[in-house]
Amino acid sequence: MGAMRLTDGGLETTLIFERGLELPLFAAFPLVEDDAGRAVLAAYWQPFLDLAESHGVGFDVDTATWRANPDWASQLGYDAARLRAVNEEAAGFARSLGRPSLDVRVNGVVGPRGDGYVSGEEMGAEEAAAYHLPQVRALAAGGVDQVSALTLTYPREAVGFLHAAGEVGLPALVSFTVETDGRLPNGTPLADAVAEVEDRTARAAVGYLVNCAHPTHLDGALTGGPWTERVVGVRANASTMSHAELDAAEELDPGDPDDLARRYVGLVERLPGLRLLGGCCGTDLRHVGAIAAACLS
């Protein structure tokens, strides 16, 4: 992963709770299909790019495609052809945000087949590979530099995703989410999840991330050992609440940006491979700015 890099905060929560947009099914990818939607996305991304430039670090721009897989997109009326097209368009839009003065990497985002807060029905690795392959291919065709699977809830989906990325030939990262006890929603300890994926994939991930969880949820999970060197990124929630509590909440919990930043400093000390810093649900420019100030100064 190289030197420290930044990425954004919680795209969907910012657009819904701070910008007043309606995103059915928490899906941002339809915004890339018209000028008004692209303008909203550009206005969201530009301050984060400015932040990275001010700190002299590289930046990962995500495609707005966390929900752009068949099970979710079909509920919004997308068939396979239109879904492929919107994934390609999202990749092209993300690339258009690049700046000559900034090291920008386009990250193709793949979300879970399920809801991201609970594991639900689990796929086998072969089924997961077949499920995610069309989206990975479309993102590759759109020109992404790498792909990341965010908010995965069980290891076998990660294995399948890596097989799909390997077939396309893209560098890939796996990001798990954890509950307040540091375990994945299906009950697997984070260390065991990383070990299972490493054992079952011939083509290893570039690294692992944790997203959609507060740093306090990792306290019991980071028990040390070589596996922690494979954790290259953290994209934390602003809130300390559990997934169930967040799902039931009617208002956004923005947490404490300064406290979150201090906890990131602790994560940098405990995770020797940590190179990508950003946020997830409830975080915005305030949070990522505080994290950057604390960890990059």
Score class of each variant (00 low, 15 high):
A27V: 05
L31M: 11
L31S: 04
L31V: 07
V32I: 12
D34E: 12
A36N: 06
V40F: 04
V40P: 00
A42P: 00
Y44C: 01
W45H: 14
W45F: 09
W45A: 14
L49E: 03
L49S: 05
L49H: 05
D50F: 10
L51G: 03
E53T: 15
S54K: 15
S54F: 10
G56H: 08
G56P: 06
G56V: 07
V57D: 03
G58Q: 01
D62T: 13
D62S: 10
T63F: 09
A64S: 15
T65F: 05
W66L: 08
R67P: 02
A68P: 02
N69F: 10
N69P: 07
P70V: 14
D71N: 13
W72H: 08
A73C: 09
A73V: 13
G77H: 10
Y78K: 10
D79S: 09
A85G: 07
V86W: 12
V86P: 00
E88N: 04
E89W: 07
A91K: 00
G92F: 08
A94M: 03
R95E: 15
S96F: 09
L97N: 13
L97C: 13
G98F: 05
P100N: 07
P100H: 04
P100V: 07
L102M: 06
D103R: 15
V104A: 10
R105C: 10
V106F: 08
N107I: 04
N107E: 06
G108C: 03
V110S: 00
R113A: 05
G114S: 02
D115W: 01
D115V: 12
G116E: 06
S119Y: 07
G120N: 13
E121H: 14
E122Y: 01
M123F: 09
G124L: 04
G124T: 11
E126F: 08
E127H: 09
E127T: 15
A130I: 15
Q135D: 01
A138C: 12
A140L: 12
A140G: 15
A141E: 15
G142H: 06
V144E: 00
V144N: 00
Q146F: 12
Q146M: 14
L150R: 02
L150E: 11
T151N: 02
T151Y: 02
T151F: 06
L152E: 00
T153W: 02
P155L: 00
P155V: 00
R156M: 05
R156T: 07
E157P: 02
A158K: 06
V159G: 01
F161K: 04
F161S: 00
F161R: 07
H163A: 14
H163S: 13
A164R: 07
A164H: 08
G166N: 06
E167L: 13
E167R: 14
E167P: 11
V168T: 08
V168L: 12
G169M: 15
G169P: 07
L170H: 09
P171R: 03
A172C: 03
A172S: 07
L173N: 05
L173D: 05
V174K: 01
